[in-house]
């Protein structure tokens, strides 16, 4: 009887053993990860959730006609903050800012890819003083963006270096208009092309020299080598770099703000608008709605980019490849 009872239980310990071990490891893993999760919840989840909530509220900003005082507190306004972005009084400003954000991203990132790849090719070549060239190419990327904005403002001011170099009457770069937009693109490309260069350089360094030797033996031209060997082989790294740049440029704030100044139609981005609404006007509801919209926009762009071009962000393919 006892044996009979024990018998079915016999094989059991053998089977659950891995399961038990898994639970044990799982618990330990959860325990070890939980501080990180807690920190993430605090610094990522909480702000996102509260920003989402805030986007549906608005401050009552009509002062009392007798005392002139404002009623404290916010009230729920549904999706008004979002509909106002596209149809209300502020819609022109917002749509203009969205257009600026998008055109900045497309133009600046395209320029940065071309310049960045060229920089990488230069940095990859073996020659005397290569370390010096590498270091100097990377300097712009190491400069804080706000400082870079002020430096470029100095260059672009009415009697600045830019106007000294360009013939003809001085161009007022920091006033509103296409030239201001162009100035921001120039400064952003200068600032972040080295970042693409750096990542592409890392990609170049893992390409084996044998492939190039084979191409040379086959008599391939330099162009052919670049487009058939270099570019396809650095593509995974390049795509990740471009994705990072796109996400970063969509949130561009410091350059337009410090180089041109806020309130200029040609260079206001969505983040500049959100900052002004929140910090200057104290309208946290609409500001939050801008931020939430930008969040969604960035997420969609990233998703489309990953799907269409197959950018390998998490490094799964690369790991398999190696």
């Amino acid at each position: 009887m006892a044996i009979l009872i024990d018998a079915p239980a016999g094989p059991e310990p053998a089977r659950p053993a891995p399961g038990l071990r898994r639970t044990g490891v799982g618990k330990l893993a959860a325990l070890l990860v939980s501080p990180t999760l807690l920190v993430l919840a605090l610094v990522v989840a909480y702000p996102i959730v509260s920003a989402l909530r805030l986007a549906f509220y608005r401050r009552d900003d009509t002062p009392d006609p007798v005392t002139g005082l404002l009623r404290p507190g916010d009230h729920f306004v549904g999706i008004d903050n979002f509909t106002d972005m596209f149809a209300g009084e502020s819609s022109t400003r917002f749509l203009n800012a969205l257009w600026n954000t998008t055109t900045f991203t497309v133009t600046a990132v395209s320029l940065e890819v071309v310049i960045g790849v060229l920089m990488a090719l230069v940095m990859h070549k073996a020659f005397r003083g290569r370390a010096l060239v590498r270091a100097s190419i990377l300097v712009p990327w190491a400069v804080p963006t706000a400082i870079a904005g002020l430096l470029w403002r100095w260059i672009f001011q009415a009697d600045g270096v830019a106007n000294d170099l360009i013939p003809g009457p001085p161009i007022l770069w920091t006033t509103d208009g296409a030239q201001a937009w162009f100035a921001v693109v120039v400064a952003d490309s200068w600032k972040t092309a080295p970042f693409i260069g750096l990542l592409v350089l890392a990609g170049l360094q893992v390409i084996s020299t044998e492939v190039y030797e084979a191409a040379r033996l086959d008599g391939a031209s330099a162009w052919r080598t670049f487009f058939s060997i270099t570019l396809p082989l650095v593509k995974p790294t390049l795509l990740v770099a471009v994705l990072f740049r796109i996400l970063d440029t969509l949130r561009m704030f410091d350059l337009p703000y410090t180089l041109i100044g806020p309130g200029k139609n040609a260079t206001d981005t969505v983040t500049v608008l959100a900052f002004e609404e929140a910090v200057k006007f104290g309208k946290y509801g609409p500001a939050s709605a801008y931020a939430v919209f930008l969040f969604a926009y960035v997420a969609v762009v990233a998703f489309v980019f990953v799907r269409l071009l197959g950018a390998d962000v998490l490094g799964t393919k690369a790991r398999r490849g190696r």
Partner: peptide, 9 residues
């Protein structure tokens, strides 16, 4: 950004 949002909160 988080700080801005937190301030808002």
């Amino acid at each position: 950004l988080a700080t801005v949002l937190l301030l808002g909160a």
